[in-house]
Simulated assay, not measured.
Amino acid sequence: MYRVCKAIHLGSPDKARKESTHPCLDMSRSLSWRSQTVVRQLLCYGALLLCLLQPAGSQAPVNGKMYVPLGSGVIIKCRAENLLEVKEMTWQRTQRDQTKNFLTYTPGTGPTFLTLFGRRTKFLRDGSIAIHDVTLSDEGVYKQVITTFSSMAKEYKIYLEVQVFPDIHVFSAPDPVVGGCLEKTVATCIAGAAKPPAAISWRTGDLPFVVEENVTRHKNGTVTIKSGLKMTPERKINGHKITCVILQDYGLSDVLTKRTITLQNIHFPPQMVSIEVFRNADGSLRILCESEANPPAEYTWKSGPTPYANEQKRVKSSSEKSQIFIPPASQSGLHLLLFD
């Protein structure tokens, strides 16, 4: 807005000097009346010129980034200090090297929404814009062009980047992993449809492992990372806890997510076999066998090449142990235990 500079002229040089409030108007009492009048005019014009040249509400352009989570709301601030001094304001958005005006504002007409996207925005009282339920299509460079009554047009840009947090899944191999000497995939961690892409790492304690990773880039700009954990399948890793660590960059900070599972699908034959023989008071024998296997072993007792008859062997089994009671008449000979 224009600032008005006023001078008082009351007809008498002496009275004018007394009622003048501008310190420069009393710079010389020895000047003639005509000279004082010229000085007053020059000072007034100079002050008016300074008022016209002073930029009202000006601010250095802010070029930076805003990070907004998908589905949230965001306010892009207006850079004008006083909306009353704005003659015209235009909001633009640049996507894929194409720039479109989506909103204009003038004091006389208020905000005018020029596009479908513009009608999605809300024009705030201070000139800022609000976008609700942000989508990936809202990403781009936003520019505000401000023209005030006292200055030329100024531009302010900011890049709006939409953050998409990954859809995380961690699971053991769907099919049983049979023990052996070769490394096999025992677990998988997926950080799906993230933006920016997430980084996946594994924590297995002191157990060795290798990682096999696949990257899928989607048309909407999101990225899916699939990480396979490969280990040598053996007894000691069954029941072991492993952790998938997902790290995603979020502006000036990071988002860290951890998911822990227990490996329970490692198949291995009976190991750590222990057999004990006990004699009961009635002279019968009790033979106890313990072993560790996954899945639990099935036990078959034999006397030589012939399996015990069901009514004779009286076998009691659990997932880790099996025992048989042998009467005195059947104790001689070779007794065998088979695992399946």
Rank of each mutant, 00 (worst) to 15 (best):
K100H: 15
N63F: 13
I261K: 07
L229N: 00
C289E: 04
Y299V: 01
F209K: 00
V215L: 05
K87N: 08
I146G: 05
S201C: 08
I237K: 00
H22E: 14
D14V: 10
R279A: 11
I237L: 02
P166H: 01
N82A: 15
D249A: 12
Q323V: 06
G179H: 07
V215F: 04
H240M: 01
E292W: 12
E155H: 13
A329V: 07
L288D: 06
S28T: 12
P328I: 05
E292D: 13
V245A: 04
N220A: 03
K122D: 10
L229Q: 00
Y45V: 14
E88P: 00
N101A: 11
A293K: 02
T115K: 08
F325C: 08
G283Y: 00
T216I: 10
Y45W: 14
F325M: 11
E234V: 06
S319R: 15
E161R: 13
V245P: 00
L247M: 06
Q144T: 06
V145D: 14
K6C: 15
Y156I: 00
G118D: 06
M152Y: 10
K302Y: 07
S28R: 15
Q54N: 11
W91S: 03
S319Y: 15
E298N: 10
S322R: 02
S318E: 04
P296H: 09
I190A: 07
K219M: 09
E290R: 13
P328T: 08
E212R: 03
M89T: 04
Q54H: 12
G108K: 14
Q312R: 09
L338I: 11
L84I: 04
